[in-house]
Design a protein around this nucleic acid. Structure first.
Lengths: 139, 139
DNA sequence: TAAACCACTTGTTATTTGCAAGTAGTTAAA
DNA sequence: TTTAACTACTTGCAAATAACAAGTGGTTTA
């Protein structure tokens, strides 16, 4: 059930129409930083998403052009999910989310090494990660 | 009714526990870019939020330390909402949202001047806007 | 001193989420 | 070659959340 209603032309509203829920961005996080590519891997993430929600969000993300689906060449019953170019473009936004939470959450699990690296060399780490994701996309 | 359940220590999850809905970030947008400070001003935003949702989200944002409430000194029945320091720290994240949507939404209302300015002088515009918001906070 | 303003609250209904169980195609093991 | 396990979902139902409409109780303006 894919439902995307456009509330206004405001760029903030546009993004929230796609990502404005508790789960969608966690799927993007798993694709972006945790090397996850399969339905079953997303299910076993740290936050226990329900199967129907996961299926709905994956369908919505594909419909929005943020992820792409393909069949695993070595395993016809497995489906590979990857971030599209549009999805990879979410990287700077994701990094800023992490930076904000790392600063304001006492119990954050954010890696200190990562935070320091972003502070010192933001452009470098963005290029490094997006390069890796673009390579994955072409596989 | 303020309900904030922590799902994990992941920084992405932490931010989504606060902002993972369709409305909260639009309130932050209004405070950050549209110079809005009153309940009635948020209600008349472009997207028509319901009164109870607005009240709930404002209470939650205050509880989370993202905004601060005060009584208008010239008008005892009016309440002024402002971004706290923690709220102002959301600026880079907000800017990245706008940049992503401006790039990927054909019908975006994002201002071209703003987009160009961010591309050319990200640090400069961040300082400019956060400086203005910090000044407002001290008023 | 009455009407309008302002920031909410309170019901009620509609929609979304969460949980448990089930299904259909694919692969691995006996 | 049959069977059990795996994988990606779907379905049904209960619970939680959001949306809509109306009302409330102080404050200010005329």
């Amino acid at each position: 059930m894919i439902k995307l209603k456009r509330r206004s032309d405001c760029p903030v509203s546009f993004a929230l129409d796609i990502f404005g829920d508790k789960w969608t961005f966690l799927i993007v996080r798993d694709l972006m930083f945790k090397g996850k590519h399969y339905y079953g891997e997303f299910l076993n993430g740290g936050e226990k998403i329900a199967t129907n929600i996961l299926a709905d969000k994956l369908a919505m993300l594909e419909h929005s052009g943020v992820i792409v689906k393909s069949v695993d060449p070595n395993h016809a019953s497995k489906i590979i999910y990857k971030l599209s170019k549009k999805g990879i473009d979410l990287l700077p936004l994701m990094v800023e989310i992490i930076m904000w939470s790392a600063k304001h959450d006492i119990h954050t699990a954010a890696e200190i090494k990562f935070i320091k690296r972003v502070k010192k060399d933001r452009e470098g780490i963005l290029k490094e990660i997006s390069g890796k994701l673009k390579a994955e996309l072409k596989e």
